[in-house]
């Protein structure tokens, strides 16, 4: 048995506590970029995680497939009923799309708040202690992912890219309690849209808090909440959830609403990362990517010449 806490060990303990405080202080502040050792470790672990996550996802999907098979009969019934509505809806959608296109042409607008490119990524891990709600995905800056991009599933918004390394990135889920996790959202209340902010997660009631709603807005339960596209990196029109309850805030000036998220945060396999690069978005995505690659190559080709020139002079 070791002799606990004699002089030398006490000093080591003190030094490590001081180191702990320094490291925590260093990493708690808002970091613009991730230091390279952290990125390196995360990427190399990410390789292993990515490889072993595939069989796990495969197995998990098998379980689900069996469960789905048992529900097939009931599902089939409801789906058949919905199918009748589908034809009408798709005709209407096509109609609206054409109308929208002509209107946009006549208004001469190319860029919309709702424009984005989507990149598919596999979930390779989830933080096992649930103090912070983060997941890891197998796409990084090499695949064009940057900090603060929106991350969605087919059902709706799930979070934002917290840190992007070269080959993997960390996604902070909406269910993470941090107040700085603020998203500009709007409620579709009948004909008008009401803007507000999603701020934080209510632990007790399991829902997102929508704060700073105008007090004269007519918000009811069951109304849809989507991103408004005015908050920087998030495109507009991504479903977040629906209003579950509404109450005045502590000062009585604005309203707070509890939002039930549309997406399920517990079972994630594939997610989409939305890149809202409004500036260079064009109609043809593939050619755009090629252009970008070419540009990058050109830049790389130009750079050394520039350096040499600088050295020569």
């Amino acid at each position: 048995m070791p002799h606990f806490f004699n002089n030398k060990r006490l000093i080591i303990l003190m030094v490590s506590i001081i180191l702990l405080v320094i490291l925590v202080g260093f990493s708690m502040r808002e970091r613009e970029s991730v230091p390279w050792p952290e990125e390196f470790v995360r990427d190399s672990v990410g390789v292993f995680q990515s490889t072993i996550s595939r069989p796990a996802h495969f197995a998990a999907n098998r379980f689900e497939a069996v469960e789905n098979l048992l529900d097939t009969y009931e599902e089939n019934k409801t789906l058949k009923q919905q199918l009748e509505k589908y034809a009408a809806t798709s005709a209407e959608l096509e109609n609206t799309r054409q109308e929208n296109e002509t209107l946009r042409e006549s208004a001469d607008t190319q860029e919309m708040l709702s424009d984005y490119e989507s990149r598919r990524a596999l979930v390779v891990y989830r933080n096992p202690d649930r103090w912070t709600q983060t997941i890891g995905i197998n796409q990084g800056t090499q695949n064009g992912i940057e900090q603060d991009m929106a991350v969605v599933t087919n059902e709706g918004l799930i979070g934002r890219v917290a840190e992007a390394s070269e080959f993997s990135s960390t996604v902070q889920l909406l269910s993470d309690g941090e107040r700085t996790n603020r998203i500009s959202a709007s409620v579709i209340a009948g004909d008008e849209t009401v803007n507000a902010f999603i701020e934080g997660w209510d632990e007790d009631r399991d829902g997102l808090m929508l704060r700073k709603i105008r007090s004269d807005a007519e918000i009811e339960e069951g109304q849809q909440v989507v991103t408004s596209g005015m908050g920087g990196a998030f495109p507009s029109g991504i479903p977040i959830g629906e209003v579950e309850s509404i109450e005045p805030d502590e000062y009585g000036l604005t309203y707070n609403a509890l939002i039930e998220p549309a997406a399920d945060f517990s079972d994630l396999t594939y997610v989409n990362v939305l890149d809202r690069n409004i500036e260079d978005l064009s109609e043809e995505f593939p050619s755009l990517e090629e252009d970008q690659e070419q540009e990058n190559e050109e830049e790389e080709a130009v750079d050394p010449v520039g350096e040499e020139g600088g050295g020569g002079s």
Binding site: I17, L19, I22, S27, E38, V41, N127, W131, T132, T134
Partner: peptide, 30 residues
């Protein structure tokens, strides 16, 4: 702990310290 801090949490040091500490206080090698 180091791996834990770098990959799962964005706060460095917490798990490194706790894992190291636990390893030390549980070293009853009788």
């Amino acid at each position: 702990g180091f791996l834990y801090d770098f990959t799962y949490t964005q706060i460095l040091g917490v798990y490194t310290f706790c894992f190291g500490f636990i390893a030390y206080v549980s070293s009853y090698s009788l």
